[in-house]
Amino acid sequence: MSTELPNIVTILESKLEGTVFAHYLRLWENVIFSLIIISILSIASYFVCRKQRLVPNRLQNIFEMFVGGIDDFVCGILGAQGRKYTPFIGTLFIYIIFMNFFGLVPFMKSSTTSWSTTLALALCVFIYVQYSAIKENGIIGYIDHMMGKPRGFLAFTVAIPLLLLFLHIVGELIKPISLSLRLRSNIWGDDILLSIMAGFGLKGIPMLFFNTFLAIIAGTVQAVVFCLLSTIYFALVLAHED
């Protein structure tokens, strides 16, 4: 028995049960919700930023506050060079928070309850972090960084730099897994809890509201944590003077 609440895709799937279309709906359920969010965000950002005013209206003000906040957040950690990572981290944040909250809207689903979705995002972070590290330090510099910058006597002890390299590689590979599983599990847990509360009927309404409130906090916190950790990963590979 599925513990998930019904959503528009599962409803449509049940209507078309037995057809090929139903099979694809089941397969691409999370992708469909992601695409809905992408459409909403794209259209909203297009209409808000189409006519920019020096004195902003209320909606532009909200977007400016968000963009300025993210920029301050990223540059606060990465310094002045953080500006080029602001769009990436900011897009991650807005995308994740919308996906997290989408499960609270009736007949919608949080795509972040799927590990594939969160792993895809974490892989994007992982690839971009590795690319930035190689770009900033060079391939030799990056390997040197991974080996713990062995100098003097330490450089002659081949085993220690190799061990450090191995540990760093494992650490780097673990990062996207831990990042994605943390987000997925928290949001999945919230959604399961909400669906259980919804299953209690009228008696469960107070708890449903309480859990919705908790899910809003958890969704925000998880999006912040994901972006904060991603920014720190960038900081770790870029700050090579330490």
Binding site: P87, T91, I94, L121
Partner: peptide, 19 residues
């Protein structure tokens, strides 16, 4: 793969219109 493409698509769109 689809979610990576989705994210890159959103990043591309938001980079142009928003960021």
């Amino acid at each position: 793969v689809a979610q990576v493409i989705n994210f890159l698509l959103l990043l591309f769109i938001l980079r142009i219109f928003l960021w």
